[in-house]
Amino acid sequence: MMNLKSPREIAGMAKSGAILAGVHKMLRTTLHDGMDTMDIENIVDKFITDHGATASEKGVDGYLYATCISINDEVAHATPRQGLAIHNGDLVKVDMCVNWHGYQSDSAWSYVIGGESHSTPRIDKLMAVTKKAMYLGIDQAQAGNRTGDIGWAIQDYVENQNHFGVVRDLIGHGIGPSVHEDGPDIYHYGTPHKGPRLVPGMVITIEPMVNEGTWEIATKVVKKTGWEYYVSADGTLSAQYEHTLAITDHGPKILTSQDPEFDAKYLLTPEEMDFPDL
């Protein structure tokens, strides 16, 4: 059953998303060479708690942490690991969910440790293509379109135009009031005009994971905990970007925006956010 959200619920999820976006903005200036991934976990968890919310990744399918932290060829669902440090030039993906008074949000972002001076042209291209692919998918998240329109826009740009591989096995999803809601599943590949139709009130994530080489992934296990996570099957680098967004009569509305100027056309208006009890 698809759980359609009211305008008030969407506004509440945007408030949750603002906290999550604040975490990512904080990470831009916090991640540094030699930083332990468990320190990233602790800083993120504290930021979320200090803003009156909780890290809702904890407890999902037995997961123990506020963050998923995936490095270089790690695609998704990797955990913070005590003693595992990040270094200049690493491509690090941080994914998390926030629960603010029952309103959920979900967003992942990619970072090059050390910034531009420690990046490479290939990393820059992979990140740029992945981020643009997410926005091309968002542009297709219009009421009346189908999920295949989102998937095809992403796949065509990633694979046909840029010759990278878009991961098939991990997908976007409905969200709220729980982290993962039934329907519609959002595949990052597909056929135009196919799949479930998008209707106002749906809140979904679009979260392409793009590998520099093959789209295929392999499973690894964290020895200490037995937790399974995913890497690119050929060992190439992987990037990810993710936003939570609402389908509305006025187009897709990003609820986890980090950049109000860049995302201006996708944002809720002050009137759409005006619920005094939130």
Rank of each mutant, 00 (worst) to 15 (best):
W100Q: 12
L64A: 07
D277K: 10
A141N: 00
T147C: 13
I171H: 10
A264C: 11
V60E: 11
T30E: 15
H180Y: 14
W100S: 01
I175S: 07
V158C: 00
A233D: 13
I175W: 12
P196F: 13
H101V: 00
I186M: 10
S56R: 06
L64R: 15
I206T: 08
D73C: 05
H193A: 01
D90M: 02
I154T: 09
D106N: 11
S107L: 02
T79P: 15
E74G: 14
M273K: 10
D156G: 08
K5P: 10
K265F: 05
T37Q: 06
D95A: 15
D277P: 00
W100A: 12
T269D: 10
G213I: 01
S107E: 02
Q82D: 03
Y241W: 13
A239R: 07
S105L: 08
F262L: 09
A143H: 09
L31D: 14
H180C: 12
A14Y: 04
M13P: 09
H250Q: 14
A143Q: 08
G12Q: 13
R168H: 08
M1R: 03
C68K: 01
I48Q: 03
Y157T: 08
T225D: 00
A233Q: 08
L91S: 02
L268T: 02
A14G: 06
L278A: 15
D169Q: 09
M1F: 03
D36N: 03
G34D: 09
I186H: 04
C68V: 12
D182G: 07
I86Y: 05
G183S: 14
G83T: 11
A21G: 11
Y266A: 00
R197Q: 06
A233M: 02
K194Q: 15
E116Q: 05
L136W: 06
I113Q: 12
L136T: 11
K58A: 13
Y103V: 04
